[in-house]
Design a protein around this nucleic acid. Structure first.
Lengths: 214, 214
DNA sequence: ACCTGAACACCGTTCAAGT
DNA sequence: ACCTGAACACCGTTCAAGT
């Protein structure tokens, strides 16, 4: 099959998901594609650019299902969940999305959608921008936490948090952490995400004019 | 001067802040410390472990000033700001903090403080954990955005957002992004952070029992 | 236009040898 | 106990040569 930028990106994504970002090298990818290393450079300017492309590929995979009749709360939630879904689909590539600033247009789609939803709910322009930024920060941070275990490929603490793994903290110095150890080591990304989403949605509701479209 | 783990970490932090994470190599650090590369391995097990140490060093630099009389709102805000302050002090090392799961005890200090503040405000245990997680997600995401420009060492879009840099988006496809272009390209990390902090603090206030310690 | 091997200037880390 | 040079198995990328 013909070499192409798209095919190279796909190979990179596959490799990342299988062995982690650290395993990516131009030579490994070339081997996967059965071509010489330098052939890659006919389609991709550099490894850094390739990783940017991977991030963009992942982002462009976000699937927004339009919800015409739904309230803005439901729409915002749905958009946030759609974004977070990439962490499920491409757990190890997500770190790339989160750590590289997306300079392309694909990253604008989620922002456009969120802004539209908020403005339709009666939100002012600059306020909508601030809200979207806060949401993105929360979502990105959630992805980080969720995916943070994976990239180091240390699978040792499967169920619990890395935090409690090393050594038990001194109860005198860390009374709260000690007494809440069970809660802290419980791993429930969905629950955590939904809780944070609730917080933000409620806070936004308090900002908006009451029932603007009713 | 004698070689030591602490000195190696310091050299790594300096190098990162000066030239970025990508510039770090065991050989460069050895050169900075005027020793053979392999001498480093007497004090640090691997490069990955060294980068973990760097993250820990940065986190341990967070300075919490106790605020005995203040309301929980003010305390939570102060703690969040203290955490974010590391992005000011060590902009390029921050990416490391954010991308590596901290397995050590130093990372527990901020969590302990936040939990204590919330519980004192009348918050239930499991609720406090969820709130702290939401806060951390937001803070981490904010750090990412703030620092995301730096590590790629592309200083080309100093003032504006990377988003708008490449090409103007199609107004028909991105009406909101187009009409809010000015707002979106405005760069104000402090304002963004404070706005998000406000959202979260207000949402939490709605969850807590009214004036618990009054 | 696309492919490619050789070569260059780097990596992290193992190992055996030094003190 | 700490240091170290040589060596190994890798890197990304330039360049000149092929088709």
């Amino acid at each position: 099959m013909q070499l192409s930028r798209a095919r190279i990106i796909s190979a990179a994504v596959d490799l990342i998901e299988r062995e982690g970002v650290e395993a990516v090298s131009m030579r490994r990818i070339a081997a996967l594609l059965d071509c010489g290393v330098m052939s890659l450079y006919n389609h991709v300017p550099s490894k850094a650019a390739l990783l940017d492309d991977v991030a963009e590929r992942v982002i462009s995979g976000i699937e927004f299902t339009a919800m015409p009749g739904a309230s803005w709360e439901e729409q915002v939630r749905a958009q946030a969940r759609a974004f977070r879904a990439i962490a499920r689909k491409y757990p190890r590539s997500t770190m790339l999305v989160v750590s590289r600033p997306t300079a392309s247009l694909t990253g604008l789609r989620p922002i456009e959608n969120a802004l539209a939803t908020l403005r339709e709910a009666g939100c002012g322009g600059s306020e909508a921008v601030l809200i979207v930024r806060a949401f993105i920060a929360f979502i990105m941070g959630s992805l980080l936490r969720e995916v943070g275990v994976t990239p180091g490929l240390r699978e040792d603490e499967r169920g619990g948090e890395a935090i409690m793994a090393a050594a038990a903290p001194d109860p005198a110095e860390f009374p709260q952490v000690t007494s809440l150890a069970t809660e802290l080591s419980r791993r429930d990304p969905d629950g955590d995400f939904e809780f944070g989403l609730d917080l933000l949605v409620h806070a936004i509701a308090a900002l908006l004019p009451a029932t603007p479209a009713a």
